[in-house]
């Protein structure tokens, strides 16, 4: 439906440009996405989402110098491919939630409240860490970066990155046990 609306407002020249990009890039895009996603339907989804974005933003793409158009579309493809990976993870979490909702009879409000308070306390401990240690937490836990990548980013060895991770967690634990006020 969205595609039909987008097509409706595209000029002939813009439609031609979309076709031109599609003819030139779609097979390679599909193969790149497939290599990451290992699923034909997901690779198709990534390519179709990419072209939906290209159509939505064809005006911007047309305004770019010719040599920049292809790289621009590749960056969109990378992002759409990652979105599919993220959606897959969410789907797994959603399945877990359904499972617990139907089976966990021990669930009660009081327990949930305690968990929330504990998390708030832990959050205050994370916020108390120095900037570089907070960034480490973000790399490792929020972005799921490997120790190898973190090590490269910080110009240290992988072993040193692991040790730094352990040290930060130990520090967090000590903050937490001390009441979360150790900043």
């Amino acid at each position: 439906m969205i595609i039909i609306l987008v097509i409706g407002v595209m000029s002939e020249a813009e439609k031609d440009l979309v076709n031109q990009i599609f003819s030139k890039m779609n097979v390679k895009m599909y193969n790149i996405s497939f290599r990451i996603l290992r699923s034909h339907s997901d690779a198709e989804e990534a390519v179709s989402q990419t072209f939906l974005k290209i159509m939505e933003h064809i005006e911007k793409i047309a305004s770019l110098p010719c040599p920049q158009r292809e790289p621009y579309c590749v960056i969109i493809l990378r992002n759409e491919t990652m979105n599919i990976i993220r959606q897959r993870k969410k789907a797994v979490y959603a399945e877990d939630i359904d499972y617990f909702e139907h089976n966990d009879e021990s669930y009660n409000v009081e327990e949930e409240y305690i968990k929330t308070v504990e998390k708030e306390k832990l959050l205050s401990c994370v916020d108390s860490l120095p900037e570089d240690e907070r960034n480490f937490i973000y790399f490792r836990f929020v972005h799921d970066m490997s120790f190898k990548k973190i090590a490269e980013l910080l110009d240290i060895t992988e072993e040193a990155a692991k040790k730094r991770g352990q040290r930060i967690l130990k520090k967090l634990r000590s903050y937490y046990e001390g009441g979360g006020q150790n900043a």
């Binding site: 998390k119 937490i137 929020v142």
Partner: peptide, 8 residues
């Protein structure tokens, strides 16, 4: 840690 780190 993922949840709390995300909030931070």
């Amino acid at each position: 840690m993922k949840e709390v780190g995300g909030l931070s």
